[in-house]
Simulated scan of single mutants.
Amino acid sequence: MKYISIISLVLITACATQGQSKKDKSSGSYTINKTDAEWKSELSDLEYYILREKGTERPGTGKYDDHDEIGLYVCAACGNPLFNSDTKFDAHCGWPSYFQYATDSSVVELQDNSHGMRRTEIQCARCGGHLGHVFNDGPPPTGLRYCINSVSLDFIKEE
């Protein structure tokens, strides 16, 4: 019963965006496209730095690193459902970590070769906001660790 409200929210969001595709890697288009000035006016300086400039918050400082309420984590920029709380785990890395995203419309994965490393960047599939990275050292059933900046997230507590 506790998952009904989260599933309903995900379905409502999916219906609202039906007909809109997630990022087309060849064209770079998202379903929410705003100018740099629009993002700057809507986001805090730290949100802008992380979500739009691909920054990273300091480890252990994020509000969702040690957070264990039941609900849904959504994109702080656009509200897109990203991760269910039952997929969150403590990876002891200083950032909130999840082993699976919420829906097929949650995230897109892009190659990131910055800082002399080869990683997979995670972006919001709706607005293109930088969320973090995914690594192959997570728990079953996926073996993945989506390492996400708390600043990139908002939380909807289950009622």
Rank of each mutant, 00 (worst) to 15 (best):
T120S: 05
D68W: 15
D45L: 01
V134A: 07
P96N: 13
S8N: 15
S85G: 09
A76L: 10
S8A: 15
Y48G: 00
Y3L: 11
D66R: 14
Y146G: 11
K63S: 15
A125D: 09
G62C: 12
D154F: 05
Q20M: 05
K54G: 00
L144R: 10
C78K: 07
Y73M: 14
G94D: 10
Y73P: 13
L144I: 06
F135Y: 03
Y101F: 14
W39D: 00
N113Y: 04
K54W: 00
A102Y: 01
G138L: 06
G71L: 15
R58M: 07
A37I: 04
D154G: 03
D45S: 03
G132P: 08
I122S: 08
C93N: 12
L72R: 08
K22W: 06
Y30G: 02
I50S: 00
E159Q: 12
L110G: 01
T87Y: 13
I32Q: 01
E158C: 05
K88C: 03
T31C: 04
V151E: 01
V10G: 00
S5M: 06
P59S: 10
S105C: 08
A14S: 13
Y30R: 05
H115M: 05
D36A: 01
D66G: 07
G94W: 08
L144P: 00
K157H: 04
K23R: 15
Y73A: 14
M1H: 01
G138I: 08
T13N: 11
Q18V: 06
N113R: 07
S97W: 10
R119D: 09
R119N: 09
L11D: 10
A37L: 03
A91Q: 05
G128A: 05
T31F: 04
V134H: 11
I6T: 13
E38I: 15
V134C: 07
F89I: 12
E57H: 13
Y3R: 15
W39I: 00
Y49S: 04
N149Q: 06
L72H: 13
Y48F: 06
N136V: 07
S152A: 11
F135M: 08
I148V: 14
P139V: 09
E42K: 06
G19M: 09
A125F: 02
Y30N: 01
L144T: 02
V108E: 02
L46W: 01
C78F: 07
S21D: 10
M1D: 02
F89C: 10
F99R: 14
V10D: 00
M1R: 03
I4P: 04
K23V: 15
Q18P: 03
D137R: 14
C147Y: 13
M1W: 01
G116R: 01
